[in-house]
Nucleic acid binder design. Structure first.
Length: 672
DNA sequence: GTTAGGG
DNA sequence: CCCTAAC
């Protein structure tokens, strides 16, 4: 087990300098072997994730690594757009597909709690070979043993977020590890440090053996499996937004069922294999940092939400190998069908907080709302044990400020359903009484931004309507960086061509998207861009191929049944009954490739329903009443006769002679 | 792979 | 139409 653990969590071979990447599997590495006490979580994954994100920004990729030829992550895979980050394994197998957000999702990944009371769980983290002063990670990566009085920035977060000073001057000391510090600034820092790292590499590849006991960067990290959270932080008032602070945690309700499903072990293969990955000459280094920096700033709010996402995931998966899907989007998420096109909350995007409203109904035509406070259900604030109360307070303030300062709008939900039409009156909306007010909720959402039409892909994905809600949050403020994989939204071809490994990421990706609205389109692309993942590398990657496929692959186009089709269906059912859809398909829709027997079954279901409702309530192309009558008759008949076994109920059939169904049934029987 | 149902 | 459970 030692070996195994080492493989999973030992970051021995991890060459941080190159790029913090998701240690997917360090298996079989003979280099630097260090025992790891426990394998709960790997901060590295977080780092890796961040790294990946950073890499995304980079335009090009590749390169050879100074240290180990085997461990060379490929950056900017695919079209050279620099978007996708691919981690490769020793054997050249693609380590993992990472969906990285170009420049924006980075920090969130790092927002993790490392300080754990449990000293048992440790992970050896090898740090950057670079000079301490240059690497943020170096500086901060000292994860601490809670027991140790020497905790330096107990968490990875702090380390990552450390200096706000974008410049080289990075505070050598980690301040009270304010988790909330995670922000775009941190991003910058990382970038800088990487830049430096790269420079070093370029200057001779100063890769230090992480395992070296002399390596100052090596450290012991502890990771709590569970994230502590402070619930219900009341925000009586908004203070000055502190952009740099942000570690909002999404309320549980945010995740939609999909997320839950995803997070439940069912879809995840908890195989925390850490891979020794190393990026050499990260492409991102090539690019100008300034522009990226700006982007980061601009996309600030979006990032915040990603934090949330990350947290969410972390919370549900103690093994944390969530890096995989960070920032990922499923095609569905990215480009939803029009009907889903509302605000994105359906996708779990927007709603961050619930406003508490004590509504008072006053007078007849007046509805008085007394919003006592907006609550942050799960704001996660974690600070080291040795942090001061003052720092805790600051952390809270910063986190909260960050949340509120990012530009929010208020959403109104009635009965849990979002009221989207701002033009409607309260009366029209149904907000008129105390009873209703009880079910009224307010939510804080990211301020939507107009989305450039260009973002919507039309052609390649005719069947994949763009979800404006998704796009909204992306847009202008969040520069979309072309990952180089595709120029538009997920393209059909790439998507369908993705191998199963990619698809396996789908679920996680989609779930991710569900709760995160703030993602750039590039995210999805990045995902797509990173095509293959070794099965073994799929640790924490959803295994349910099926579900993934469904999401990656766009939803089928809606193709209303024509009257003639209905007629054919009715006729077939009259003869075959309602339990033999495959036969129905074969008999009457054999040539209709787009109609599966499931479709026929569903259509029948709707036909029955349609026939049972008032004509006024029916929609779509009207179905001749006579057909509906036949539907009812057949439905009734087959219901009584258990369908399926029509041949066996001749007696019963013969007894009933006054309905179409019977008539047909009889014919059928006779024909047999 | 089908069927039956819920979503 | 999708997704799943149950066959």
């Amino acid at each position: 087990m030692v070996v195994k653990k080492r493989q999973y969590y030992g970051f021995n071979d991890f060459h941080m300098p190159q790029v913090p990447r998701a240690p997917r599997s360090a298996r079989g590495r003979g280099l630097n072997k260090i025992k790891v006490e426990d394998s709960q979580i790997c901060a590295f994954e977080l780092l890796a994730s961040l790294a990946g994100k950073l890499l995304q920004e980079s335009e090009s990729s590749a390169s050879s690594n100074a240290s180990e030829a085997n461990d060379q992550p490929v950056i900017g895979g695919g079209g050279g757009g620099g978007g996708g980050v691919k981690f490769e394994q020793d054997d050249d197998r693609p380590l993992k597909a990472e969906c990285l957000d170009h420049g924006s999702c980075g920090e969130s990944d790092f927002v993790t709690q490392f300080s754990s009371p449990n000293s048992d769980q440790k992970c050896l983290l090898n740090e950057f070979p670079h000079a301490e002063s240059n690497s943020i990670l170096e500086r901060s990566s000292v994860i601490t043993n809670p027991n140790s009085s020497k905790n330096v920035g107990a968490d990875l977060k702090s380390m990552i977020c450390k200096s706000k000073n974008a410049c080289e001057n990075i505070p050598g000391k980690v301040e009270g590890s304010l988790d909330s510090r995670v922000s775009c600034d941190s991003y910058m820092d990382i970038g800088l440090s990487r830049q430096k790292r790269r420079e070093r590499l370029d200057n001779g590849g100063l890769i230090v053996d992480p395992c070296s006991s002399n390596d100052p960067m090596k450290m012991c990290m502890k990771f709590p499996a569970v994230i502590n959270s402070v619930n219900n932080v009341e925000l009586p008032s908004c203070r000055d937004p502190v952009p740099s602070a942000s570690i909002p945690r999404p309320p549980q309700r945010i995740g939609d069922r999909r997320i839950r499903k995803l997070l439940t072990s069912k879809y995840w293969k908890v195989a925390p294999k850490l891979k020794d990955c190393e990026f050499s000459k990260p492409a991102f280094l090539e690019g100008g940092m300034n522009s990226r920096y700006l982007k980061r700033k601009l996309s600030y709010s979006r990032e915040r939400y990603q934090h949330n996402t990350f947290y969410k995931r972390r919370k549900f998966t103690d093994h944390s190998v969530v890096v995989t899907s960070d920032g990922g989007f499923s095609s569905e998420s990215v480009c939803n069908s029009p009907d889903k096109n509302m605000t994105g909350d359906k996708n779990g995007a927007a709603i961050m907080f619930h406003g508490h409203q004590a509504a008072l109904h006053s007078k007849d035509s007046q509805v008085k709302f007394s919003i006592k406070s907006f609550r942050v259900p799960e704001l996660l604030i974690e600070v080291p044990e040795n942090a001061t109360v003052g720092s805790l307070k600051r952390s809270v303030v910063e986190a909260v400020s960050a949340i509120l300062g990012g530009g929010l709008r208020v959403g109104v939900l009635l009965h849990g359903k979002k009221v989207r039409d701002d033009s409607r009156t309260l009366l029209q909306t149904g907000i008129t009484s105390n009873e209703n007010l009880d079910t009224l909720d307010f939510s804080l959402e990211p301020t939507p931004v107009q989305v450039p039409p260009s973002l919507c892909t039309e052609d390649p994905l005719p069947l994949l309507p763009c979800d404006t809600s998704q796009l909204i949050s992306r847009s202008p403020t969040t520069p979309i960086v072309d990952s180089g994989i595709s120029d538009t939204l997920p393209d059909p071809a790439p998507l369908t061509n993705l191998d199963t490994n990619i698809e396996s990421n789908r679920e996680s990706v989609s779930s991710h998207a569900d709760i995160v609205t703030d993602n750039t389109l590039s995210d999805s692309r990045a995902l797509v861009a990173v095509p293959s993942v070794n099965a073994e590398e799929l640790a924490m990657v959803p295994l349910n191929q099926k579900s993934k496929r469904s999401e990656l692959v766009q939803r089928r186009t809606r193709r209303p049944f024509s009257v003639s089709e209905v007629e054919a269906l009715v006729h077939a059912v009259e003869e075959l009954g309602t339990g033999r859809w495959r036969d129905v398909k074969l008999c009457s829709f054999e040539d209709a490739d787009h109609r599966t027997y499931v479709d026929l079954k569903d259509k029948w279901k709707t036909l029955v329903h349609t026939a049972q409702i008032a004509p006024q309530q029916r929609r779509g192309e009207p179905v001749p009443q006579d057909l509906l009558d036949r539907v009812l008759a057949a439905h009734s008949y087959w219901s009584q006769h258990q369908g399926k076994q029509h041949g066996k109920n001749q007696t019963a059939i013969l007894k009933i002679t006054d309905s179409h169904a019977v008539r047909n049934g009889v014919e059928d029987i006779h024909s047999i």
